[in-house]
Nucleic acid binder design. Structure first.
Lengths: 218, 218
DNA sequence: TAAAAATTTTAAGTTAACTTAAAAATTAAT
DNA sequence: ATTAATTTTTAAGTTAACTTAAAATTTTTA
């Protein structure tokens, strides 16, 4: 399967698994940086390959076969992230960028070697779960977005759901990283902002960030 | 630059650097598994990009720019080979196959990280020299093909110039590998075969193999 | 709930990287 | 040194993955 197909399928999967629910061609197109006409064409083609269900004007839905393919690519992506993170001193954003390319050129054999080397990790450095070689995610996720966290409660950062460079630069500067501890000192409900303390720092975050930082109660 | 372009440029470079000298479109096409018509088209296109010199019916010659690009890809290929060889238990042929894909999707940054991790190696596991980040090969090669070796002389294997699966299977079975020691016990000149001893084994090799196994006097 | 706004689809066209088949030129052989 | 064989080029055509622009449909809003 081509890189274009893998990325298309992956984009649908990612939208579905974060509850962004909109998997219509136009939205997928936006994420891939292609026209929605191209996305419609691709959707029709993939329907004939039994990778997704296509009905005019409706949201796209992966078939079991499509989901399996998505999970295979996602597995390779997250394994590369975990591997590069462990081996080299590179920013989370750089690691993401490399993984985005390498994921399409990695045999199942190599993916298994990487997984074994890392001790079959269940999470990548963003806290995203790594599917096993059967395409199964065996972990459960009970974490919540920082936007929905309780005032006064202490949390552990469980996921950083982004691929945005500036976001990761911000994280690096403020020690916001996977498995670090933070306390929610104040929720500014009407302004949609959250105040946290991390180490000796106090930071106020707006919703752009509190919707993509996920945490677990400590 | 596209994968097709990188592979085309690399094929010319590889022919030039092993003295296979034939870099006409037809021969490049054969190596890439495309038609010679396609190779001619590609050659014309790359000439307009200043990557090679094209004259009808003549051999293709890389420009400095083209050579630099080839060396950049070759560097990534050989770094991946060295890295995968060190990290994972995989056959030389499997490693080659992975590197063939990964080389096109590797940033200069990642290549430098891999190189640093390995201590900036000068050779890959086949004995091929690894260009530095400026695209320079600083090592000299005085090795000769086993076909041209002296009877009675002991040698160290310096290069295994192949990407053929069966060849590497044969090597693995007979302990023929980079930096191992062998002795040439007999040259059967008229039959174009070479008898060597390696450890306690005696093997007679035909020219298919003695032309791609390179050795240094010990 | 009808009109306005937004989105999706269709239609037509482009580009890169191929193909096959025939014509042109080169290389090899007698 | 011709002719035969081989190789390269040209010409015409295909496919995947796009594009833009207009038509069809859905969604939003007043």
């Amino acid at each position: 399967m081509s890189v274009a197909i893998e990325n298309f399928i992956k984009a649908i999967y990612n939208n579905d698994s974060h509850d962004i629910k909109d998997t219509k061609p136009g939205n997928i197109a936006k994420q891939l940086g292609i026209s929605s006409a191209a996305a419609t064409d691709m959707a029709k083609k993939l329907a004939t390959k039994n990778l997704l269900h296509y009905e005019k004007y409706q949201a796209l839905q992966l078939t079991d076969k499509g989901t399996k393919m998505a999970l295979n690519v996602v597995r390779k992506h997250r394994l590369w992230e975990a591997f590069l993170f462990k081996m080299f001193d590179m920013s989370l954003h750089d690691i993401h960028r490399e993984a985005e390319l390498l994921e399409h050129q990695t045999s199942d054999l190599l993916a298994d070697k990487i997984s074994a080397y890392l001790g079959h990790p269940k999470f990548d450095p963003h806290g995203d779960p790594i599917p096993n070689s059967n395409g199964e995610i065996t972990t459960e996720d009970h974490s919540i977005a920082l936007a929905d966290a309780k005032e006064g409660q202490t949390y552990v950062i469980s996921r950083l759901m982004s691929d945005n460079k500036e976001f990761f630069e911000f994280c690096a500067l403020n020690d916001i990283k996977y498995r670090n501890t933070i306390t929610v000192s104040k929720q500014f409900i009407t302004n949609k902002m959250t105040q946290i303390t991390i180490g000796s720092n106090t930071i106020v975050l707006n919703q752009d960030f509190t919707k993509i930082i996920y945490v677990d109660e400590k």
